[in-house]
């Protein structure tokens, strides 16, 4: 038994080490002075906070993070709402042409953002939304993958529950509210987490629709730091670590909920 433990720990340790390695290297670089940056030592000989000072002073990282939080939060909320409604309609309402609608949703799943990008840019410009939160949020308030996931989830709910509610004379809206949604809380959480992550990770779109530094999200902020400081990897590293910190802390604090959310959404999918 003890020997079994040893091998399991060894395997767990090796795996963890390789997972952590890139972050470890980044973390190490962020504390190195310029002279040390290319030296092989992982532990800085003369560690410094100078890189963090430069990154914080030069780049409004707080603002970047706040923008990302706001945008990703709103997008997640919106997607959860529209997906729950539409997913319910596709799963539990006898609609003429329901399969067709579902097929359309699945097809939309595959429309790459880079293809619709310029017409969408055109549209957003005509609406006067460039460099505003509108451009970052509104186009993403509905998502085929969310509808897909919610539909799959609502399909797994036992029909009896709905029949019971129907006998009580409930319409679909009430059934959705009182029967389906309470049961779907984990799935909603999962979708929320997924939506939040993908909105948080948006890259090309904010790169183009934002102009002022105040409107940029943290991804673009990191791109900006990389472009501006490509010759100073220690500063880039410090900026990236700072950009990582909030999500990392959020993850560590809410790991359980987060994992449960993702799990339930994925498993019933």
């Amino acid at each position: 038994m003890k020997r079994g433990f040893f091998f399991i720990y060894l395997a767990l340790g090796v795996y963890s080490f390789f997972i952590l390695l890139p972050l470890l290297a980044l973390f190490s670089a962020s504390f190195k002075p310029a002279q040390e940056i290319f030296d092989p030592n992982l532990v800085p000989r003369s560690p410094t906070l100078e890189n963090y000072r430069i990154a914080l002073e030069k780049f409004p990282l707080g603002r970047f993070l706040l923008n990302s939080l706001l945008v990703a939060g709103l997008v997640a909320l919106g997607q959860v709402a529209t997906s729950a409604l539409a997913g319910y309609a596709l799963a539990r309402v006898r609609l003429p042409g329901r399969e067709l609608l579902f097929g359309a949703v699945v097809a939309l799943l595959l429309v790459p953002g880079e293809v619709t990008f310029l017409p969408l840019y055109d549209l957003v410009t005509h609406l006067g939304w460039l460099d505003t939160y509108w451009a970052l949020v509104v186009p993403f308030l509905a998502t085929p993958i969310g509808i897909f996931l919610m539909r799959q989830f609502f399909k797994t709910l036992p029909q009896d529950l709905f029949d019971a509610a129907r006998i009580d004379g409930a319409g679909h809206l009430r059934m959705l509210w009182h029967v389906a949604l309470p049961l779907a809380r984990p799935a909603l959480g999962a979708l929320g987490a997924l939506s939040f992550l993908s909105a948080w990770n948006m890259y090309l779109w904010p790169l183009v629709v934002t102009r002022s530094t105040e409107m940029q999200t943290v991804q673009i902020g990191v791109n900006m730091i990389l472009n501006e400081e490509a010759a100073r990897w220690n500063v880039v590293a410090a900026g990236a670590i700072l950009a990582l910190l909030p999500t990392l802390v959020a993850f560590l604090v809410a790991q359980r909920q987060f994992v449960r959310g993702i799990t339930l959404g994925g498993l019933k999918g």
């Binding site: 539409a86 309609a89 309402v93 609609l95 329901r98 939309l108 429309v111 619709t116």
Partner: peptide
């Protein structure tokens, strides 16, 4: 009225997808 209600539920998502995904895709 069931189908009407169903479409009503589908509408918000449909609207956003129509304007911000399908229309640009069609344009493309």
């Amino acid at each position: 009225l069931e189908w009407l209600e169903g479409y009503g539920l589908f509408l918000p998502a449909a609207l956003f997808l129509l304007v911000f995904t399908l229309w640009p895709a069609f344009q493309a």
